[in-house]
C-alpha cells in the first residue's frame, strides 16, 4: 500500500480516537480535551521509552496507556466536578502547560522536537486494531445500561441526579477512559510520523479536532468516525489551489453547522429513520 495512504489511515485513526475520547465526556455534559493532553504524554513517552531507553514497543505502549489513564484519573477528581465550560478551559490550559513542560525538557528535544522515532509497518495494524477494539467497546457502552444512564445525563442532568445516577463518578470513569484512548492515539502518532513536535500535536490538533467532532456529529460515535477521514483528506486530496484554504473552509463549516444544525451532520435522528426503514 502506498505510504501516503497508510499514513493517512494511521493519522485519521489518531483523530478518530481523540474524537471518541472527547465524545465520551461530551455526552455527560463536559467539553473535555484531556485526551489531547494524554496524547502528548503518549507520543513523547512511547517515543522516548523506545528510542532512548530501548524498551520493546508493546511494553512502551502499555506503559503510556496506563500512564495516560492514571493521569486523566487524577485530574478527573477536579475536572469532573466543574461546569462543562470550565472543564473545557481547564483542559485547554493543560495543553499549554504540557507544551511549556515539554519545551523545557532537553531530553525531549525542547522546542525542536523529538526525532528519530522508528516507523514500523505494524503501526497500521495497531491503528486498525485500535479502531476496532475501542470502537467495539464504545459501541457496547452506548448500548448498555450505563449508556442509557449517560443519555439521561445528557438530556437532563437534574433528572439524572434524581434518578440516583452519580454524575461525578460517571465523569471520572469516562475521563479516565478518554485519557487512556488519548495516550494510545499519541503512540500511533509518533510512530507514524517518526517524530513529535508538541506545537503540532497540542494546540495544533485541538482546533481541527473540534471542527471534525462538531461538524461530523457530536451525539454519536459515528460522526467523528466518518468525518475525521473525510475532512482530514481535504488537506491531502483537494487540488492545491483550494487546499491552502482548508482551514478557512473548516471554520466556515463549523460556524454554519453550529448555526443550522448544532448536533452535527450525523445525528441521532438519522438512526431513527434508518431503524424505521429496517423495521418495514
Amino acid at each position: 500500500m502506498s505510504g501516503i495512504i497508510t499514513t493517512f489511515i494511521q493519522l485519521s485513526t489518531v483523530y478518530i480516537l481523540l474524537g471518541w475520547g472527547m465524545f465520551l465526556v461530551w455526552r455527560v455534559g463536559q467539553l473535555y480535551v484531556g485526551s489531547i493532553f494524554t496524547m502528548i504524554i503518549g507520543a513523547y513517552g512511547s517515543a522516548y521509552l523506545v528510542k532512548a531507553l530501548g524498551w520493546p514497543f508493546p511494553a512502551a505502549l502499555a506503559a503510556v496507556v496506563l500512564a495516560g489513564a492514571l493521569i486523566a484519573f487524577i485530574f478527573s477528581f477536579g475536572f469532573a466536578r466543574v461546569s462543562g465550560f470550565a472543564c473545557g478551559i481547564g483542559t485547554i490550559a493543560l495543553l499549554f502547560i504540557a507544551q511549556a513542560i515539554v519545551w523545557s525538557i532537553h531530553a525531549f528535544g525542547g522546542v525542536h522536537g523529538y526525532f528519530g522515532v522508528p516507523m514500523p509497518e505494524y503501526i497500521l495494524v495497531l491503528a486498525l486494531a485500535s479502531l476496532l477494539i475501542v470502537g467495539f467497546l464504545i459501541y457496547n457502552l452506548v448500548h448498555s445500561r450505563l449508556g442509557r444512564a449517560i443519555e439521561v445525563v445528557n438530556t437532563d442532568i437534574n433528572l439524572a441526579n434524581t434518578l440516583g445516577i452519580n454524575v461525578y463518578k460517571l465523569r471520572i470513569t469516562l475521563q479516565t477512559a478518554a485519557g487512556a484512548i488519548g495516550a494510545l492515539a499519541g503512540v500511533i502518532y509518533s510512530f507514524t510520523m517518526g517524530m513529535v513536535q508538541v506545537q503540532n500535536i497540542g494546540v495544533g490538533v485541538l482546533l481541527e479536532l473540534i471542527v471534525f467532532f462538531f461538524v461530523g456529529g457530536s451525539s454519536t460515535m459515528w460522526g467523528i468516525l466518518i468525518f475525521a477521514p473525510v475532512l482530514y483528506s481535504f488537506h491531502l486530496f483537494l487540488p492545491s489551489s483550494i487546499a491552502m484554504f482548508t482551514d478557512l473552509i473548516f471554520g466556515i463549516l463549523l460556524i454554519v453547522i453550529m448555526m443550522l444544525r448544532p448536533e452535527g451532520i450525523i445525528g441521532k435522528d438519522m438512526f431513527k429513520g434508518i431503524r424505521r426503514k429496517l423495521q418495514k
Partner: peptide, 27 residues
Amino acid sequence: PLSKKSEGAPIGTFILSTGILVILADL
C-alpha cells in the same frame, strides 16, 4: 440561532466561536 434555542449561555456558542477564530487565525 443558538441564543434563541436555549436559556443562559450554551456551550455551543464556545464551539461556534472557535470556528470564527479558525478563520481569523488562518487569515
